[in-house]
């Protein structure tokens, strides 16, 4: 599903965020991405989202060579990837329903279809009863669950999560992780960047460890 071959990312400032990275993540895997801040976690995610392009090397996502995707194709490419952010990036000028519906509207789904899919996603994260509410009134954990519903509403094959539990207490974090595990059991490939070592140990999944732009453990499946 995700394949990095000898990938290097050097920024214009000369800083090398990733050096000769090789990664392979198979379809249906759930992988944690750890490392200190500045180790290259965000850069790795940005390369997958095509927010950045590698300076060197080869990236393949879902069997597609990303270097072949031009600027105009990026929007369509991103529709196949769900993203969960640490600060959840919800829009407070609209309801929970409309926040979750955004990826479907963007992709041109039909109105009736949108209603059905949004409710299914909200039901999965246990927030169906809050669909008419403005997300600003929700708790941190609930907001993050709305963010997750938005990431999976399109049924993407790959979901990236960047510090999804960063601002949550352990109990809520565990709840979010359970949700991720459920999606994984449905066949979704997951890549979760996190600092939370306890959580990772409890989940018993592959851990990809980065340090100073290099993979120091877990780059390929055992």
């Amino acid at each position: 599903m995700i394949r990095f071959q000898n990938v290097t990312k050097r920024y214009a400032t000369g800083q090398e965020a990733l050096s000769r990275v090789d990664i392979q993540i198979d379809r249906g895997e759930m992988v944690f991405l750890t490392g200190h801040s500045g180790a290259g976690k965000s850069t790795l995610m940005k390369l997958i989202m095509l927010m950045e392009r590698p300076s060197n090397g080869h990236i393949e996502i879902g069997g597609r060579d990303t270097s072949a995707i031009r600027r105009s194709g990026i929007a369509h490419y991103r529709r196949d990837i769900g993203v969960v952010f640490q600060n959840h990036q919800l829009l407070f000028d609209r309801s929970v329903f409309d926040n979750v519906a955004l990826p479907l509207q963007v992709a041109g789904y039909q109105h009736s279809d949108i209603g059905r899919r949004v409710r299914a996603a909200l039901d999965k994260v246990g927030l169906l009863h809050k669909e008419r509410v403005n997300p600003v009134t929700l708790s941190g954990g609930e907001q993050q669950r709305v963010g997750i519903a938005r990431a999976v509403v399109n049924k993407p094959a790959l979901v990236l999560a960047d510090e999804p539990t960063g601002n949550l207490d352990p109990e809520l974090s565990a709840e979010i992780m359970t949700l991720f595990r459920q999606f994984n059991e449905l066949g979704v490939t997951l890549m979760i960047a996190t600092h939370d070592i306890d959580l990772i140990e409890r989940m018993n999944k592959r851990v990809l460890q980065l340090a100073e732009g290099r993979v120091i453990a877990g780059g390929v499946p055992q």
Partner: peptide, 9 residues
Amino acid sequence: MNRFHPKRK
């Protein structure tokens, strides 16, 4: 839409 979803087909 989902070009690489395994469960889709």
